[in-house]
Design a protein around this nucleic acid. Sequence first.
DNA 1: GCTTGACCTGGAGTCGCTCCAGACGGGTAA
DNA 2: TTACCCGTCTGGAGCGACTCCAGGTCAAGC
Lengths: 120, 120
Amino acid sequence: MRISEASTRSGLSADTIRYYERSGLIPAIRRGPDGLRRFSPENIDWLILLYWLRKTGMPMKEMRRFAALYREGTASIPERKEVLLNHEERLRRRRADLDRCAEVLAHKIATYRKIEGEPS
Amino acid sequence: MRISEASTRSGLSADTIRYYERSGLIPAIRRGPDGLRRFSPENIDWLILLYWLRKTGMPMKEMRRFAALYREGTASIPERKEVLLNHEERLRRRRADLDRCAEVLAHKIATYRKIEGEPS
DNA sequence: GCTTGACCTGGAGTCGCTCCAGACGGGTAA
DNA sequence: TTACCCGTCTGGAGCGACTCCAGGTCAAGC
């Protein structure tokens, strides 16, 4: 399939996909005889994974490392697992940030409601 | 207090505080006779709020709007409450993203473990 | 009176996209 | 055939939100 379909399937914009390829985050995208990119189902799975990793805050640098490991084949699976386990930890920290922020907001909103309740 | 203390208390770097001031996110920071910024306790509370809003993904544009409302005084409290309620909604969406990503990771990691379990 | 350290401003650099101009090639319509 | 879309290509500029740095000021301590 071509880039627009890859885009709708992965959630990444066509521009972002091209940018990721340039940045070495995507191993080997074939080209058709017309010179256009052709995406395999495995390419799509990979893009979807990248989509979630980025969306939840993995830096490009780490994704580049992950992509390099992927290119090395199955021997790198323990290291790849490490990367994902680290990212799970990052998700936990982010969730804690969301919780803390929710508390701050709840408190602030309660204060606002109080002020509204007793208008000057 | 001065900028370094404001930085440790708010969690924002001194550079970021100065940048936020330039960008109109911080209403009125006094200067001492030496020309240096002096932060009041209310300034600090404000910075802490900005810290949490940014850390959890509120765009600067919206924070600028929020700051403008703050400068208008108590009359703008209903609108400010709106902004914070919208941000609560954003937090919920982000949490959903984290959950979805956690699922994707769990699945991927399980696959890796399987492959490790049956080495070629 | 000299050094040290915190602060200042203005401006350049970075990351991760996003948008755009200009070119190409394939498919439909007049 | 010619005309025109459409989707894609590349290279490069622009942007949001910082981050870092050079070069300067000033107060305090030795």
